[in-house]
Structure formats: structure tokens, C-alpha cells
Design a protein around this nucleic acid. Sequence first.
DNA 1: TAGATTGTTAATCGATTAACAATC
DNA 2: TAGATTGTTAATCGATTAACAATC
Lengths: 214, 214
Amino acid sequence: MSNLKKDKRPLEIPKPTFERLKKYLALLLQEESEYISSEGIAEKLNITPEQVRKDFTYINIKGKPKVGYHIPPLINELSELFGIGVMDNIIIVGAGNLGSALAKYAGFKKIGVRVVAIFDNDPVKIGKFVGELSVLPFSEENLKRVIKRFKVKIGVICVTEESAQEVANILVRNGIKALWNFAPVTLKVPPGIVLENQDITTGVLTIKHLLEKK
Amino acid sequence: MSNLKKDKRPLEIPKPTFERLKKYLALLLQEESEYISSEGIAEKLNITPEQVRKDFTYINIKGKPKVGYHIPPLINELSELFGIGVMDNIIIVGAGNLGSALAKYAGFKKIGVRVVAIFDNDPVKIGKFVGELSVLPFSEENLKRVIKRFKVKIGVICVTEESAQEVANILVRNGIKALWNFAPVTLKVPPGIVLENQDITTGVLTIKHLLEKK
DNA sequence: TAGATTGTTAATCGATTAACAATC
DNA sequence: TAGATTGTTAATCGATTAACAATC
């Protein structure tokens, strides 16, 4: 366990800090140099170096004055925080363009994620290959088998908004513990199930708002 | 202009409020009833009704005690805030699965966004149709022409991380004012250019972190 | 050593929550 | 009218910023 202060009280990472830590990790994974200063990080993310240093007090790393932070251990520490060391098998439901894009996404490996199956109920898509995976029919038997065999905890929803809730129900019923939802719907899930909505349109709303102000 | 208080001082919408307003809008667009209470909204988004009411003080709407908020005017007000009334033409660079998914995404209309062109430099993809659009060769001439003709201000980057920065440079050079970046890279853009990074992996990091704590 | 950069504490700022009055 | 729900002000809580001491 890493987030202990000297006095041994574990401390909760504030939400905003947590979000920034994700950005630091993404940035560091791209970095090629060996060391980086708080200033270096701050600059690329449009925040202050003080912010960066403060955020780092929540994880167990030390920088060197005059040098900055050694990147590899920093990546390790952040990786541990996000549970990247443990490889999680995930399944994707919906083999449309979005589902296919995710199934083929190369960056998952770096963050401890492996796509083990992709499902669809469109006969045209079933059996076709998406990257190295053949599209499986979305039946409860198939689902059950895959989830059991690969100990899958995370299900990705890439279906239409009309089917999203039903798919969510089926996944949860078959033992999925977390849903990563790309459909533009507000899903209802039982307590204890982790739900992460990845609303793809929100970004463009921010852009429109910013452009309007000019 | 809508965000004035009684005393006519315009007031900045706090960032967290702004983010929630986006969620309210997404939710309301799915809603079928005519009225909704702060409690009704709060429940679906796992926040408190007080939060919702407080947030609404930043926009120009009034609810009715005992009834709640009338959804249509609420949607209008939020739409105005995000500049949804004005239709923005956007172009997509990269006709892979992700670019294609976006090009075909039906929900854009609702938020005042229209995809007018999709580019790629892969000869295999050029000329093929993605929805109703034929993939255009990614040349500066084509780009210039489309941007001028459709008054395009927003460019979407759906290319590999290797080409993303170069594509960004070319878009900006040809008059694009805002970039919506789906490539997992930290782009550098000149001041004045709006940059919105849509890092698709961040969601799963949150999931992994939450699952780990159990 | 001098200087740069980290790490930490204190002060400020801003957002959330609580309480309650207004109102349909 | 009574009751429910909004709207707003004040109190609390939490995050950011500033200042500076520690250290390589």
C-alpha cells in the first residue's frame, strides 16, 4: 500500500488530484527522457508546478532537487495506484465501428487491459475478425463461458442507446462487476456495480462553448 | 446573453458546475416526461438535489415549487449555453474505426454539430463511403477548400499517435480554430487555438482503481 | 558553495452543503 | 390551506495557491 503519510494515516486522494494523476501517467508514458521536473509536466498540461508537486504528495515518490522526478519509478507508482500491474481481461459488446476501434486499440496493454472477446448479435458481423478476435454471438451461454474462463470483471458497452440498458442487465446478471459505457444513455445498475460513462460528445460541447465566447 | 444575476453582473460558471450542466443536458435530452424535479435529476446522476438547484442558479431558468423544472425551456437554456443553436460544421481526419464511428454518430445533430467531411491518406480508404460521406484524400488543397466552403472551425483528430501532431499542425495552418483530439498524445497548439483531448482510456483507469479497492 | 527545484505548511480561494424562507 | 419543492444565503468543507524551508 503506497498512499501513507509519514504518520501512517492513509489518505484519500482528492477527486481532482486523481484525475490529474491519470493525465500525468498518460504524459509520462509518452515521455522519452529519464527525468522530468514539476515545471516540465505543468507546462504541457497547462497547470502550475506547485499543483503537480502537491499532487505527488499523495503518492509515494520523491523527486530530486535540481533534477526533477525519475520517470520510471514515477510510472510504477502511478501504475500501482491504478492497478495497472494486474492485467484485467475485458469484453466488448457491440462490434460496430466504436467497438472495433476499442478491440484493436494498442494502448490497452500499457495500462493493464486485455480485450478477450467481442460480441454482437448481427449475423453479418458474427464470425468476422476484428483484429485477432472473431466476433461471437451475444448469447448468455457464450457470455457466461467467456466471463468464467477469463475471469472477466469489466464489460464495455458499445451498442446503440436502445439496447444499452438491456445489455447492461445481461452483463451484470452474468457476473460482470464494472461497466464501461459508451452508449449515450444514463444506465441504471445495482449497487456495488461500478459504472463509468464515457460520453463521447461532452468534449465537443466544451469546444462549442469556448468558441462561442470569442 | 443569459448568465446575468439580478444585479446584472455576469458571472462565471464554475468548472465543476459547467461539467455537471453538460450531464444535465445529456440526461434531459433522453427524458420523455415534461417536468423533472431537482431530486429526479440528482438521483440519476448520484448527486444531491441541492447541488442541482445551485447549479441552475447559474443559468436563467426557474422551476415551479411542487412541480419541478419544465424540461423544454431547460433544454433551450442549456443549449444556448453550449452554443447548440448554432450549427457547427466539423471535419474528421482519419477514417479508421474511430473516425468512422464519429462520422456516423447520429447524436451530433442534437448538439449542433454536423460532420461535413472525413479525410484519410490511405488509398484503400479514399473514395469509400462512411455513412453518407466519401472519404477524401488528406491534402492541404482539399482541406482548404472544405474549410472555406463549410466555414469549418472544428477539426477532429482520429489518426495514430505518430501522425497526430503533424495533422494538428496542418489543420491549424489551414484555419481550424479548435481541435478535438482522440489520439493518445499531448498535442502542442499555438495560443488561441482551442484544444480538447478526449483520452479514451482514462475511463478504464478509474474502473481499475475502483475494482482494486474491493 | 550557489542555485535550482523539491516538499510542506499556512493562507486563500472557491465549491459544496446545510438551513430555511419563498412560492406554487 | 398544507405540503412539497424551489431559490438563496450562510456555514462548512476542501482544494488551490503562496511562501519558504529543505536538499541535492
